[in-house]
Design a protein around this nucleic acid. Structure first.
Lengths: 147, 147
DNA sequence: GGATGATATGAGTATATACACTCAATTTAG
DNA sequence: CTAAATTGAGTGTATATACTCATATCATCC
């Protein structure tokens, strides 16, 4: 049962997961570089953005909405809290934690937006708006189908 | 300079980096679940596959080929070496490390292939072959453009 | 109204990722 | 042939990711 070279080559080139991870790595690096002056990483920017937009979700619910593991989001939030960009407070349902974006957090986010826009523009322009829109949709489909 | 809710929403939905990371996370989870019986993670499978195919590349060269950071690949390889799936030996150019896939490594890889095929099939079938082929190409373009 | 199942979270552990800094070996310029 | 530039790799540090296990709270159903 030996796997030949050809098949290996094919596998490396066509593996859906590898292609996605590779693109994700490289695009993330580009965004992190662009965001550097803001002091935020792209993950932190995304999480901050999500809570800026709808801050009244518990960690689990938000993690489902974002397609992140609950514990991953939890640890990302801990970092943001350490930086003073959010606060974590108990909710009425005492199992839940409420996330509030602090003034400092809102400021950091807003100052980061132009850098994000620049990176976003650059990355998307590689494909053009049309192809990007299609990919956006297909990425959603893949993510949904992976569950 | 307040960023309004609408704009936030738009950002979260359209951020290229977030979309990619999200899809990457969820698809990776699916592949890792599928590969679980093999004892390999998808990253380890990918790296093993790459060296199975062309084992005579130093770490830096291989990392460039795979679109991975050199130190990331280096640490991934250390794990594979700990598991006895590869060995690291100095090359003629004494700066380089040569990676050899061991018998055990080749076996582990080959035994994992069917699980990989199953996951690959499942993920791709979400889009269909045609859309997947297009996405594959566009992901490459994005990755290339991000540098 | 207390047992039971569902839900929310945290902690421990392991892996993946990459930047900055450093050192060693090689190559190249003069 | 030597000094400088390049190249290959390791370490320290920080972040991102997710699985498993444990715990606390809530909702619900007799």
């Amino acid at each position: 049962m030996v796997i030949d070279q050809q098949k290996c080559l094919l596998m490396a080139r066509t593996c859906a997961c590898f292609s996605l991870r590779r693109a994700s790595r490289l695009v993330s690096q580009a965004f992190d570089r662009a965001l550097k002056p803001s002091g935020l990483r792209i993950t932190q920017f995304s999480v901050l953005s999500a809570y800026h937009m709808s801050g009244d979700l518990g960690i689990s619910k938000m993690s489902r909405g974002l397609g992140m593991d609950r514990t991953t989001l939890s640890r990302n939030l801990k970092l943001l809290a350490q930086k003073g960009l959010i606060t974590l407070e108990p909710a009425e349902d005492r199992r839940e934690q409420r996330v509030k974006v602090t003034q400092k957090g809102a400021q950091a986010f807003e100052q980061a937006v132009p850098y994000w826009e620049q990176a976003q523009q650059k990355v998307i322009s590689t494909l053009g708006d049309e192809k990007w829109a299609a990919m956006q949709q297909d990425l959603r489909a893949l993510a949904a189908g992976a569950k």
